[in-house]
Simulated scan of single mutants.
Amino acid sequence: MSSLPRIARALRRTLLQAIPTVIGIVILNFFLLQLAPGDAADVMAGEAGSATEETMAAMRERFGLNLPMLDQLLTYLNNLAHFSLGFSPRYSMPVADLIGQRLPGTLTLMAMALAIAILIGLTLGSIMAAFAGRLPDRLISIFSLLFYSVPGFWIGLMLIVLFSVTLGWLPSGGNGTIGADLSGWAGIVDKARYMVLPATSLALFYVAIYARLTRAAMLEVRNQDFVRTAYAKGLSPAVVTVRHILRNALIPITTMAGMHVGGMLGGAVVVETVYSWPGLGRLAFEAVMGRDYTVLLGILLLSSLLVILANAVVDIVQTWLDPRIGEL
């Protein structure tokens, strides 16, 4: 059976589940944010130093903050129906444009962090499975669990102290050299230097998860009948490990990777703040501090869509890894 029908079936199933999920997330986030004290008018008036009651009333009327809660929700849903995320009072620009400026930075950071976490996790997990119960297995387990137990912001600060302050190898923050008009390979290298520390800081938390999961999955798979059959056919241990054991062990790992997209979006708030990285996480923090709930609603909506998209990609990858999944 061709893989295309299985992939189409997986995408259709994900889409049918996504529509009510997104609607529920939008409504729930809206009411939760309404419980928070204050609004954008209060913060903007406080930053200005003084504001009259008439000025604040005019600001609330201009941005629709004086409307009843249900009317605000209907207005927001109407904007979404017209593919609009609304207007930001604090930044005085459409939310979609504001998110569009920050989204590439966060997506790049998350992709790099996820790649680092999976690559290191698979490598360490494979070594742990090969030396199960022996010294390398125990040492790597302790080493990986150390990063799992330490808060992300502390890891970020320690990486800055070591690689930026002490050794001077990497920059401590930002996303590029200020004033440097670099392009081509030089521009890529410059961006990569600024991305190494935040991506590593975001990834280290998940290394222990992928390492332990890889170890457990490989130990379980290598005792299956098809692995013994592959050895009986005369295949080399390396071929059996890569084509049979590791491929089947990737199924639970891809499942966890899809679940971790949402966690990485949450972790990006801390990492982007520590490293002054211009992304959605830092924008979400600024929106909370500025009571700019329209921006925050847009970020939460986009985050939920990214999680749904990641799970759709996971379904496709798992259908490719194990064709039997597409039949379920």
Rank of each mutant, 00 (worst) to 15 (best):
V43A: 05
L109K: 08
A48H: 09
A203P: 06
P151H: 05
W320P: 03
G179M: 05
G326Q: 10
E327N: 10
I178G: 11
V95I: 11
L28A: 15
G266P: 11
A208H: 10
F143W: 12
A57C: 00
G234F: 02
Y91N: 04
V22H: 04
S92P: 00
E327L: 13
M69V: 15
P171R: 11
G86C: 02
V317F: 12
A186P: 02
G234W: 03
R243G: 01
A129W: 01
F205C: 06
S303I: 09
L114I: 13
N223H: 14
A58W: 00
L167H: 06
A257N: 04
I253T: 02
I120W: 01
L328N: 14
R222F: 01
W185P: 01
V43H: 03
T214A: 12
W169Y: 13
A18S: 14
V22I: 15
L302G: 08
T108F: 00
G46K: 03
G38E: 00
A111F: 12
P278I: 00
G38P: 02
L162D: 02
G279A: 08
T166M: 14
G24R: 12
A310V: 03
T214I: 09
A81I: 00
L302E: 05
G24C: 04
W154R: 03
A117S: 14
L122G: 05
A216K: 04
I116V: 12
A96Y: 03
Y293E: 07
Y231T: 08
A287K: 11
L35K: 10
I27M: 09
V314R: 04
L32R: 07
V240N: 00
P252L: 10
V43Y: 01
R6I: 07
Q224V: 04
L80G: 06
L77V: 04
A45W: 01
V270M: 08
A36I: 15
G156C: 12
I25C: 10
E54A: 15
K233W: 04
L35P: 00
E53F: 09
E286N: 13
I178V: 15
G176V: 00
R134S: 02
A10V: 14
F143L: 15
A180E: 14
N29K: 05
I120P: 08
M1I: 06
I160T: 10
P37K: 07
H244T: 08
I188S: 12
G64H: 07
V317Q: 09
S276V: 14
V314M: 06
L182T: 07
G267K: 04
A230C: 07
L77P: 01
